[in-house]
């Protein structure tokens, strides 16, 4: 690996000034499961690596029932699924962080890092979009927020400007009669990259018969994970049935513009969008009813 300097600031302001000073030559390190490989393999280069795991705002998270969750950007996957309250409230995210790599990866990889890495096939991003997460960014010009659905701009690219870093994610309180799920298709059981991923969130009426609100998001079918807005909006007011889920799957295919690659041809991926949309909606509804 090429040489670089390493810093581990304990204050957010110090991180911002170090990142601003080094500009394009700085890279942020959280769990390191992507950036260390990218630096080693020459896919990224850096003169300065800024380890953000000692900044309190990036490591904090606290669950309070009925309130929005603030999840520090460097909180690793295992802390999400080992927290019984968070894992019960945000099941789509829990589904996702449990299958990002193997256990060794989940010990280090962070949810915020998975978002910043901006892989089109990222597992946590459809879950974050379905759960309507908002990214909190800090930088030399102050603070700003960006919805998770708008955070990624191209494969491996995100909205962060020079000197900026992701501080935390807000996940809205799930509310009564709601449920969510994330599933991906891979040809093996674990340790693989999604051929297609889908995250769904639903909020049902108090009888549990109709969908009041839904959010569907997809990965590995476009240059970035995408929010299936038309399918999501169409679901509002619909009864819970296999036919409704199947129709939502057809509508979700409209935002899919997949490529052919070694993981699967575009036609197959488009087919999978329908299947996974249907399945995640069914699971989300089932979870909302229990």
């Amino acid at each position: 690996m090429i040489d670089f300097e390493y810093t581990a600031p304990t204050q957010l302001d110090d991180a911002i000034s170090q990142l601003s000073e080094a500009g394009d030559r700085a890279r942020i390190l959280a769990g390191g499961t992507d950036i260390i490989v990218q630096l080693r393999e020459g896919l990224q280069s850096a003169d300065l690596v800024v380890d953000v795991k000692k900044i309190p705002e990036l490591t904090q998270f606290e669950f309070t029932a009925g309130q929005d969750l603030q999840l520090g950007a460097s909180v690793p996957c295992w802390q999400v699924y080992e927290n019984s309250e968070i894992s019960a409230a945000y099941t789509a995210l829990t589904d996702a962080v449990h299958i990002i790599g193997g256990w060794q990866i989940q010990s280090r990889a962070s949810v915020g890092g998975n978002l910043c890495n901006a892989s089109p096939a990222a597992d946590s991003i459809p879950a974050l979009i379905a759960l309507d997460a908002v990214a909190h960014i800090a930088g030399p010009a102050g603070r700003r927020t960006v919805p998770a659905s708008e955070f990624c701009t191209a494969p491996g690219r995100n909205v962060l400007e020079k000197g900026e870093l992701l501080v935390s994610l807000t996940l809205p309180a799930p509310g009564p009669h709601s449920g969510s799920a994330y599933q991906r298709f891979i040809p093996r059981n674990e340790m693989d990259i999604a051929v297609v991923g889908a995250g769904s969130y639903v909020r049902l009426d108090s009888d549990g018969q109709k969908i009041e609100q839904a959010r569907i998001a997809l990965s590995a079918v476009a240059a970035t994970p995408v929010f299936a807005e038309e399918a999501s909006n169409w679901l509002a007011g619909q009864p819970i049935s296999e036919d409704v889920f199947a129709e939502a799957g057809e509508l979700a295919k409209k935002v899919a513009s997949p490529i052919d690659d070694m993981r699967g041809p575009a036609e197959y991926r488009t087919h999978l969008v329908g299947v996974l949309t249907r399945r995640t909606l069914a699971t989300a509804c089932e979870r909302a009813r229990t």
Partner: peptide
């Protein structure tokens, strides 16, 4: 926690 030591600086 188990980690891949190749992915830790």
């Amino acid at each position: 926690l188990p980690v891949d030591s190749c992915l830790v600086l």
